[in-house]
Amino acid sequence: MSPTELKIIANRIRRRDLRAVYEAGAGHIGGEMSVADILTALFFDVLNVDPDDPQKPDRDRLVLSKGHTALALYVVLSERGFIPKEEISTFLKPYSRLNGHPDRNKVPGVETNTGPLGHGLPVAVGMAKAARLSNAAWHTYVVTGDGEMQEGSNWEAIMAAAQFKLDNLTLIIDHNRIQQGARLADTNNLAPLAPKLEAFGWTAEDIDGHDMKAICTALAPEAVVTGKPRCVVAHTNKGQGVSFMTDKVAWHHKVPDAEQFRQGMAELETEAAIREDV
């Protein structure tokens, strides 16, 4: 799929996400906007997955470790045909399977239940190790937040992945520079991330996490270095696509009011019109 086509889909996903947060009165809009392009590229270009057979043994695995942005994943899954599009309107409603954090036992396309931070990468290491033991060709991708990299469990997994030489594992860090309560730089500043991964024996590459061509190139199977797990530090913006949310700490999980919703949708629709014109 071309970068332009992917951008059009990502824009549609951002609009549906924003509407769902507005209607549900909750969500993690900032991080959902920052990760939207990464998830779109994965599900529409990179991953070998089949909505009609979501459990097929040789599927690629995608772990969304930043589980609080589940809504972005749900919208992507609905656009890709894993769940009905109309189901997004049930987000957070009583007994909806679209919980605030993803549940693999209820939602096809979800591989492991995340929510507490620092869980996805260790599980992804186990997945990649399983593929290696079975001489299977499928690849494991895991998306973490950058604040989440403060969890020690991630560094346990980073050590193990290098030791196991898991070149069938790709970690994508959604590096939007903002965690729940403050900027990374004002909390535990892990930046720059790439040299730290390299010091642990990984390959690491910095990319623009909103540039579809850059994302798809970085995540392509042929970009793997034999014997090394791969990290892609995706430089993103929290709230990407909506001007007044962009790069603002307050929009980690703030809910837009009616006027903000209208303005946000207008901006995204303008972007959509321009893209579809191209």
């Binding site: 695995r61 260790p122 290491v125 186990g126 997945m127 990649a128 190790k129 399983a130 033991l133």
Partner: peptide, 13 residues
């Protein structure tokens, strides 16, 4: 922590 996470991932695989 990684021990148990890796276990879960192995089961998934």
């Amino acid at each position: 922590q990684n021990l148990v996470g890796v276990g879960a991932g192995l089961a998934n695989g």
